[in-house]
Amino acid sequence: MLPPPTAVLAWMPDADQPPLTVSRMLTAWTFDPVMVIPVLVAAGLYLWGVRMLRRRGDTWPPSRTAYWFFGLVLVFVATSSALGVYDRTLFVVPAIQHMLLQMIAPVGLAMGAPITLAMRTFPVEWRRVVLAVVHSGPVRFIGRPGVAFALFAITQFAFYYTPLYEASLRNVWLHDFSHVHFVLVGFLFYWALLGVDPVPHRPPFFFKFMLVLALAPMHILLGIPIMLMNEVLAEGYYLEVARTWGPTLIDDQEVGGGVLWGFGDVAAAALISAFVVQWYRSDERDARRTDRALDRQYGSGPTMPPWWLEPEQAERPPPPREA
């Protein structure tokens, strides 16, 4: 008897899993085609692009490649390791998955500059198509950092505080779609925020920095209410699973809420630090650019008079010294 199409195209492990031990953390794996195949395709296409550049004598920063594969590895681990096996058994596991897929992995994917790589390797006609998409009306709208941040935030609250969470535990397609959606909405936010690739909008640095600061209170509002809830999210589903080991349902949810709060704050702090460094380096670049412009205009020799003096002041002899 042939398996149903959903079992061939996508699957999720049984919710009734054995106790989660250290051994199970290291040896429990699942390979959902909907998640594994896109990761492999993205890795192959990126390496092909880098190879194309090197074959024609161009260079591509190794750090960009490292960022890209860092993001892909996190997506793979979050969906295929023990996290993917137990994400329908314990509430804390999808909370960790969520943070990895939406908060951390997309940073590496955005820093990998895939659009820039495509623009440097695609034929001219395809490059025009890529630019047309980047500057199209829908992308210009969702590519605004403020709009991307709103989608980034609303996604998280809508997932946990509506029936979507329980539905994603029961339906394989919603289960996979939620994972893909987390990655895409996270990539959209960091793509618009960091501006490593071509983007339709480049707002002031201060505005983008304020969006990064807003990540911390957003995760406080997301995680703490879940920690303090007296009722269990998706309680009907978890009662059907009837897990007999590990924490109680309410304790499990409390820990998961703490993960959503704490993990988000740690990621926000890391982003704030990165933005401070980027701001400092930007100021340094502006200062060096200004110095070079002044040198070109007024000269840089040690005997040159200060540029702020008028020529007649610079040529006027100093007054005689009194006896």
Rank of each mutant, 00 (worst) to 15 (best):
S81I: 06
L74S: 02
F152Y: 15
G57M: 09
V77C: 10
R88N: 00
Q97D: 07
A118W: 11
R127I: 01
G146V: 13
L101E: 11
V75T: 07
V139R: 10
Q102W: 10
I115D: 07
L100R: 05
F69M: 12
V134M: 07
P61Y: 10
W60M: 00
G84T: 02
V130I: 15
F152A: 01
D87N: 13
V107D: 03
V130S: 07
T121I: 00
A78I: 06
F152C: 09
R56Y: 07
V93Y: 08
L90P: 08
V147L: 13
A150D: 05
R128E: 07
P114Y: 09
M119K: 01
D58V: 08
V85F: 02
A113F: 11
L53S: 11
F141W: 15
A66E: 08
P145N: 06
W126S: 11
R140C: 14
M119T: 12
V134S: 01
P145V: 13
P106K: 00
M99E: 14
Y67D: 13
F159V: 09
A118P: 00
A153D: 09
L72H: 05
V77N: 03
L109M: 04
R127G: 05
V129S: 09
V147K: 06
W126E: 12
L90Q: 06
A105F: 11
A132F: 11
V75M: 09
R140Y: 06
L101Y: 10
I154K: 07
S80P: 01
H98V: 02
F141L: 15
L109G: 03
L117K: 03
L151M: 13
R64W: 12
P106L: 02
T65S: 13
A95Y: 10
P114L: 02
L72N: 00
A153C: 12
V139P: 10
R127A: 03
L101R: 10
A113S: 15
T59A: 14
V92G: 12
